[in-house]
Design a protein around this nucleic acid. Structure first.
Lengths: 223, 223, 223, 223
DNA sequence: TATGAATGAGGCTTCATTCAT
DNA sequence: AATGAATGAAGCCTCATTCAT
């Protein structure tokens, strides 16, 4: 599972001659820097400084700054989606499955602020790099399929209302989970940090789960 | 020998000699540029190009790039909150008032993507400029007070459950309204643009209104 | 005619605030460097070193290295063609006029090796920058018109054969005058430098004049 | 553990293990690249890309870029002079021999633009590499000797004027033949391409042959 | 003999900012 | 109040070359 760095006779550069490790090292440093400062705010020199390689290697493996950013974005998506894939909902009843998925997403986003920031930055750039990446699109089909399955089972059992659009439901789950991390700085600055304490976040997650479940249920309160 | 500027009250530069107008001109150009490219991505030269003034004036009135950004951010908040202030909910029943507020917020954010992008950018910068701005914080108290009033009336009338936190409710409303605009590029790139057509947005807004109302109601379906 | 540099209170930078002088200064330094090392061999830093300005000014006035090269090429052509324009042949008989033009061209090229080198370099680059320059093409029409006039007069007087193509004649004159300078290094390295001493060059010029006159005369020796 | 190259007489790399072939391969690629972009404009990576070998081989066989260039220049001279050597003029009368030599040189240069460009480049570099090459100088003695022989025979027969300098004559022939190729880009850009069509070149060659013959003849038209 | 990985030095260019008028 | 000219610091990137195997 872990990359065998193999740095016997280590010293600073004992691990070289291992391209994958070098690329990984660069990618991690780049993600930190890009997440912290954005695409144009990021400094190649800062990235190098977080690295055990030289500046030249960035260009050797990633062409240029934009190329490095694009790969870092892909890596961020890959990492997060891989984490999500570990969640097994197949055994749970539809309602329990949905509840768990929402709670998990909320917590998972919270635990991966770097990913959230990369996505924020990509949105600032109008998703230009995302569109150009074949790698990423594939990763997101699974997310929707999981939801699709839950919805269909819930409808069949009559616990969910008919015609729930899995994409719209995913949107709803993402919106709150994402915003919770992305807008925390401004929200806290304006309205205080109570929502972002441990207790506040737990309460928020529970409220979010309840709200989304309710909106999926079979018999909504008549208007 | 000296250039005869001769712009007495007319010609291209007749509008100068009006400090407020010059500042306003700069601020608008700056907002466009910052919203489009972020803080470090924005170019002073581009801002000047969108302006009828010269580069020197930016430094004359706004100190430096950071200062200009801070003022542009304030202006963006001021403009949006002013728009919100026009909404009069005092006459409406609590439920109707809440429904209207949610729908309005959703549409208002949608109509002000530049504001959304400024806030995204500010979050990338950890709200450092927002924290420093006394101007902005004041603007947001009103927003919460409006919600506070609705909640208290709804509780008093028994249509809303007890103990609703206006800040948490504001968070919920903001999350979906904000995410709808901020993450549209990536979301559309990954899952298609159906949610972002006119029809899609209308349906989404209605769903959002319904969901939030439900979550505020007095008797949630027992778990 | 001369640029008023006006450097009272001179010191190193007393002449600044005079854009034309700055541009001229850069252009001269650039021509030297480009002529010496070619387009890619030239170093911006070397150009700056020959200058009384800073590196930044090159980009301020000439966009980039390629732009500077293009302007330097134009300037080289302009300077040489201006020198040629001073030659007045109107009063001379056709044969004398042609003889004088050939001798002048030969000597003029010899006196302007920097121009020759710029043209050599431009040919290495397939005249890409020349093609893109509207400035230069205009300069060369005069050269041909001068020849055109001599040919027509010579034909009318019966001293030149009919149907001489002024462009072909210009080609012939240019070929020897240009090659004499452009290929001097390799030719001298291979065959010795006798042709390039003062005496050698004088003899060469006379031979060239005689040859070209002969080829223009009315009655060539029958084959 | 060791990579099984197994290229016995076949496969992509079957031709390696043949040092001369490898060197030849590199030399051809290098000549193309140098001729196209000049010494500093040429890129080692581009040369490698045109090759079936690896970058390391260039340094192994040619020391460095400069060394490779020097060898490529030598190879270019060797190839062209070898082509010239095939021309047998011994059987022809002096005038016919000279006419044929001129025509041949004109066409030969035209057919070897890569050689012309190498010489242009070497002139830009003041023939520094040529001077250092013993190989090349030897190649050029034959060329002059051939002319020397023609001149002496012509003088003896009384068809050429006395005292023709074979080197000066070679210069004359080279000038037009070389310029015709070297300056084609700029000349065509400035004065149109008529001279460089098939028909134009044929006419030019004939005119050149006639002119040079005339200048060598015994009784020039009296001034 | 051969190769993919790695690199230091140096090149071109950009940017926010200030100066002289 | 306003401007065009000017700039230093720093950014991104390229290149010939060498190393480890």
């Amino acid at each position: 599972m872990t990359v065998a760095t193999d740095d016997r006779a280590s010293g600073k550069r004992g691990w070289t001659q291992n391209p994958e490790a070098v690329k990984q090292d660069i990618l991690e440093a780049a993600t930190e820097e890009f997440a912290a400062h954005g695409l144009s705010g990021a400094r190649i020199d800062n990235i190098v400084a977080r690295t055990r390689t030289s500046k030249r290697m960035i260009y050797y493996y990633f062409e240029d700054k934009q190329g490095l950013y694009a790969r870092a974005l892909e890596a961020a998506y890959a990492k997060v989606r891989t984490g999500e894939a570990a969640l097994d909902l197949g055994q749970l009843e539809p309602e329990a499955a949905l509840a768990r998925l929402v709670a998990f997403t909320f917590d998972h986003h919270r635990a991966n602020p770097e990913f959230i920031r990369m996505v924020m930055i990509e949105n600032i750039h109008n998703a230009e790099n995302l569109v150009a990446s074949d790698v990423i699109r594939g990763l997101n089909i699974a997310a929707i399929e999981k939801l699709h399955d839950i919805c269909r089972r819930g409808e069949a059992e009559g616990v969910f209302r008919d015609g729930i659009d899995p994409v719209a439901l995913h949107w709803q789950i993402s919106a709150v989970s994402f915003f919770n991390v992305s807008n925390r700085p401004t929200f806290a600055a304006l309205f205080g940090g109570d929502l972002f304490t441990e207790a506040g976040q737990d309460a928020l997650r529970d409220a979010v789960v309840r709200t989304i479940l309710q909106s999926a249920r079979a018999v909504p309160i008549p208007d």
